[in-house]
């Protein structure tokens, strides 16, 4: 019954879904001959005055309709932890953290800078405090940025899974699990290629229900053959096959599987899931437009661009 508090937000976003790009629109964009033609097509899809060309704007829009949507904050954990990495490194190297800070984020740049600068970690959300303290100590003691990055990345995935489990929502739990699985597969594969040792790999991985951390770390330390054998026996054999083929195809799979999850919220009339789905849909759309623009600028052919396009929600 608590889902009905999102009635207004869900109805508003359903109306906005009409302005999301479809596969047909993407095909037209690919076929367009100039940036002006692309812009005209994108402008014709707008059915609201609210700007939604960046994820920050999309997030603000969702927050306006559903201000107390705690469950949705999990969608921004990756940005939050990225910003934590950025602020720690910027402070160590006496640089302005602003240029590395990405939005939308649950933690403002000012809060992050103050918390790290003054070591007042209680200013941060609970799930970030210990990680921030450990990462800062680690980087100042060892000057090894990779170690602190590894710690922060793993903590991010763990926080996502823990908080999604606490929220009780199946959708967010699956989102956190898929995000963690994709990240673990990538990390394990890279570690395997770089011939990293088991203790390092074990610290870098987060583990999920389907991909047990220990098994994955042992296999990655053994070599890529053993690693792919673990993937084959898990629910991620498709992902492993794509990873073998090309990292670009695997990256596309990582994005597509999240959009597929978002599609499951299409039939829901209430609850935070349609809101999360809209955010994911816009994320995929913005990424597609960015890839398309870059590909066009670099003179890639239409076939290559089509291959790289992410799955769309519509």
């Amino acid at each position: 019954m608590s889902g009905i508090k999102y009635a207004k937000a869900v109805a508003a976003l359903r109306a906005m879904e009409n302005s999301l790009l479809s596969r047909n629109d993407i095909d037209q964009l690919i076929a367009s001959r100039s940036q002006a033609e692309m812009n005209a097509l994108l402008a014709s899809k707008k059915n609201t005055d609210t700007p939604q060309s960046t994820l920050k704007e999309v997030w603000e829009l969702i927050r306006n309709y559903a201000p107390d949507s705690e469950e949705l904050k999990i969608l921004l954990y990756r940005n939050d932890f990225h910003n934590l990495k950025a602020v720690i490194k910027a402070m160590i190297h006496n640089r302005d953290p602003k240029i590395y800070y990405i939005e939308p984020s649950n933690v403002s740049l000012e809060t992050l800078t103050e918390a790290i600068g003054k070591k007042e970690y209680e200013l941060l959300p609970e799930h970030m405090r210990q990680t921030a303290e450990e990462a800062y100590d680690l980087v100042t003691e060892t000057l090894d940025g990779q170690l602190s990055d590894t710690l922060i990345d793993r903590s991010c995935l763990e926080a996502m899974q823990e908080d999604a489990a606490k929220s009780g929502g199946e959708f967010m739990q699956r989102y956190a699990e898929l995000t963690a699985a994709a990240a673990d597969i990538k990390t394990a594969y890279r570690c395997s290629l770089l011939k990293k040792q088991y203790p390092f790999i074990e610290k870098a991985l987060c583990g999920t229900k389907e991909l047990e951390k220990g098994d994955l770390a042992r296999a990655a330390a053994e070599g890529t053959e053993a690693l792919f054998a673990v993937f084959e026996n898990s629910g991620y054999s498709d992902a492993a096959a794509l990873l073998k083929e090309s990292p670009a195809k695997f990256e596309k799979w990582c994005d597509d599987i999240i959009v597929e999850l978002a599609e499951t919220a299409r039939m829901q009339a209430f609850g935070p899931e349609p809101l999360a789905a809209y955010f994911i849909a816009k994320e995929a759309e913005i990424k597609d437009i960015r890839i398309l623009t870059v590909c066009k600028e670099s003179g890639a052919d239409n076939e290559t661009i089509t291959e790289r396009m992410r799955k769309l929600y519509v």
Binding site: A7, K8, V10, A12, T48
Partner: peptide, 17 residues
């Protein structure tokens, strides 16, 4: 009240509905 909430969400995006 509940339908009104949902309806206002739609109308805020598309008043023609």
């Amino acid at each position: 009240g509940l339908v009104g909430e949902a309806a206002s969400g739609v109308v805020s995006v598309d008043p023609s509905k």
